[in-house]
Amino acid sequence: EVTIKANLIFANGSTQTAEFKGTFEKATSEAYAYADTSKKDNGEYTVDVADKGYTLNIKFAG
């Protein structure tokens, strides 16, 4: 089991951190699914992958 950390960075400057656990593939998939659901309210996003994929910096356009 691994933990994927997602740092969500919103257009207004606020941030949120979420953690997803499971296999690398499952946790990563859940992090992207979470970003997709947040996209409806926060606009399109880009992802900067860090820490060999264990940290995702997800920046929303607003």
Rank of each mutant, 00 (worst) to 15 (best):
A33Y: 08
K5H: 09
N42G: 08
G22D: 04
Y32S: 02
E1H: 12
N42S: 08
L8K: 03
I4N: 01
T17K: 09
T55W: 04
Y45V: 02
S29R: 14
A33C: 08
E44F: 09
T15L: 10
N7Y: 14
V2G: 03
F60T: 00
E30C: 13
Y54H: 09
K40Y: 10
A11Y: 08
A11V: 09
T17F: 11
F10T: 03
V2P: 03
F24V: 07
N7S: 06
K39A: 14
D48I: 13
G13E: 04
E30H: 07
E25S: 10
T3A: 06
V49C: 08
D48G: 08
T3P: 02
F10G: 02
Q16W: 12
S38Q: 15
E1G: 08
N12C: 11
A50H: 10
F60R: 00
V2T: 06
F24Y: 12
D41L: 13
A61F: 14
E30A: 14
F24L: 10
E1M: 13
N57H: 09
T3D: 02
A31C: 07
T15K: 11
A27L: 01
E44C: 13
V2Q: 05
F20T: 00
D51F: 04
D51Q: 04
D41G: 10
A18L: 15
D48S: 13
S38F: 15
E19M: 13
A61M: 14
K26F: 12
D36G: 05
A11N: 07
G13W: 05
A50K: 11
A6Y: 02
F60M: 02
D41Q: 12
T55D: 02
A50M: 13
Y34Q: 04
K21P: 03
T17S: 12
T46E: 09
T28I: 14
V47Q: 01
K39G: 08
K59D: 04
G22F: 03
K40D: 09
I9C: 10
L8P: 00
E19P: 02
I4F: 02
L8T: 02
K40C: 12
N57Q: 06
N7T: 12
D51C: 07
Y54K: 07
D48M: 12
V47F: 04
E25P: 07
N7R: 10
G13M: 06
E1P: 10
A33Q: 10
K5C: 11
D48N: 11
G22E: 02
N7E: 05
G53M: 03
T55P: 00
Q16N: 08
I9A: 06
Y54A: 05
A33N: 09
T17W: 10
T17E: 08
S14G: 10
G53Y: 02
A35L: 09
T46I: 11
F24D: 02
T37D: 13
T55V: 10
T23V: 07
A61Y: 13
N12H: 06
Y32P: 01
K40L: 12
S38D: 04
Y32L: 13
N12S: 08
A11H: 09
F60H: 02
N57P: 00
D51Y: 04
N42C: 12
D48V: 13
G43H: 04
T3S: 08
G43K: 03
T37M: 15
K21Q: 09
S38L: 15
E30S: 09
T37G: 13
I4K: 00
A61S: 14
G43N: 04
N12E: 05
L56G: 00
S38Y: 15
T46K: 08
A27K: 00
T23D: 07
T15F: 11
T37A: 15
T17A: 08
Q16F: 14
S38A: 15
A50P: 03
G22I: 02
N7M: 11
N7I: 15
A11Q: 10
A18D: 04
K21H: 13
